[in-house]
Write a protein that binds this DNA or RNA. Structure first.
Lengths: 235, 235
DNA sequence: CACCGTTTTCGATCCTTGGTCGATAACCTC
DNA sequence: GAGGTTATCGACCAAGGATCGAAAACGGTG
């Protein structure tokens, strides 16, 4: 009954891990921030940033603190919890439950990184420590799904962008082709983006100058969860 | 760097909690399984079933074990993780991280319950212990959203049902009106349900006999996450 | 057994949304 | 200014859901 109180507190650790994702210029794919473990276990393999939850620490505060060891947290445009994993064998020699997070960084951010830390395209991950590869996959899946029914694009895009640049970001994050015309019409109708009025000068070789857009909001909004079986639309 | 190993394991508990939801006859709303606490803290208020994670226990295994103290787990038609909460003050006098689950039971199930345990409509919750009210709300939200883009209805519906009965279940779970015609066409097109061929005899007062349907699958499938910005359709 | 009320079921229409494609606009270089 | 290039816009099509009304299939009643 009152098991919450009568049971002795088990000796069990809790850690937070973050898959920080970014679309970078190097490759047309999503990149994830990884650091290479120097010590056992899993020395030499790559791991997600994170660490143990402090004794009196919020989960959110903890992941922010742990991330601060690797990157400038101010550059993070989005951070959300993904899931928790508690397989007893997930880390050898230690019982630790992990709560994983999805972090996002705009494409123009290029934070300084410690020597053991670099970006890796998620399409070509190095040998990963523990279950961190699974966590990356879960985070990437969460990102691509949420890109389609929320305004989460704001977290991947730079403050200003042309539609071509934005399409490139969406292509990388979704893993498939994205029609520029479609993207523009959809995001405009959803009022996710708006033109700034400015245009960019075409490069050598010419071409029509591209209009510069920005996202209208910088916090997560569910545009329309595609309310199948929707409430009677009042509009 | 290797904080994962160098830091001493903090004394921190981990519990699992489940919001088991069901559409019941008593009220046209989703009901949640709650038990009334007899001991402090929060004596008298209502709590979700759950308890401490065992030292060598999977998270999923733990919530199933804890739930078994309250209901016949075999009647659970679905169980999935929702999120984790780690506010240090969430349970007074004890530092414990909670991972919450959404459990579902078909409308026709009526399991035996311990004396301290009953169903409560989520639209009219009693005084709740700790942050359990928030967990219920998160679970209900997860349910209603997933009902629209997955076949999760199978977990709420009885093995056989008429469209009117199913519409009643969806109305309760979604919290708004549902057109029977729409529901039928959508679920048929998505191949989520199929007619059994049988019909039900109309009650006194007459009426056309209703066709009896069943769900085609009993495991979670994403019908079509409404792939906005979809990959080029190959069909 | 014809009529009526009831409930379910089916079909037709409208609207919104996204996908596709071609035409046009605005720029470059030569 | 001709030709190449890129961006933008508009027209069209298809699919899916919402809405509504008609038809079907029953029980009850006179």
């Amino acid at each position: 009954m009152a098991a919450t109180l009568s049971t002795p507190v088990p000796q069990c650790g809790h850690e937070v891990l973050a898959a920080v994702l970014q679309v970078r210029d190097e490759a047309p794919a999503v990149h994830v921030l990884l650091w290479q473990r120097a010590l056992e276990p899993a020395a030499g393999s790559w791991a997600l940033p994170g660490g143990d939850l402090g004794p009196d620490e919020h989960l959110n505060a903890s992941i922010r603190r742990q991330l601060a060891e690797k990157v400038d947290v101010c550059e993070l445009s989005h951070l959300e919890q993904v899931d928790s994993r508690g397989r007893p064998e997930r880390v050898p020699g230690r019982r630790v439950v992990a709560t994983s997070y999805l972090g996002l960084m705009p494409a123009d951010a290029d934070p300084r990184l410690p020597a053991d830390t670099t970006w890796h395209p998620v399409t070509d991950l190095p040998p990963m420590a523990f279950d961190h590869g699974l966590i990356v996959r879960a985070a990437v899946g969460r990102l691509s799904r949420k890109l389609t029914y929320t305004n989460l694009g704001f977290a991947l895009a730079p403050p200003q962008f042309t539609m071509s640049e934005l399409a490139r970001i969406y292509r990388a994050a979704l893993g498939h082709d994205v029609d520029v015309t479609n993207l523009q019409r959809i995001l405009l109708r959803r009022a996710q983006i708006e033109p700034t009025g400015a245009t960019v000068r075409p490069g050598r070789g010419g071409g029509r100058p591209a209009a510069i857009y920005r996202f209208t909001a910088h916090e997560l909004e569910v545009t329309d969860p595609f309310a199948v079986l929707a409430p009677p639309r009042s509009s």
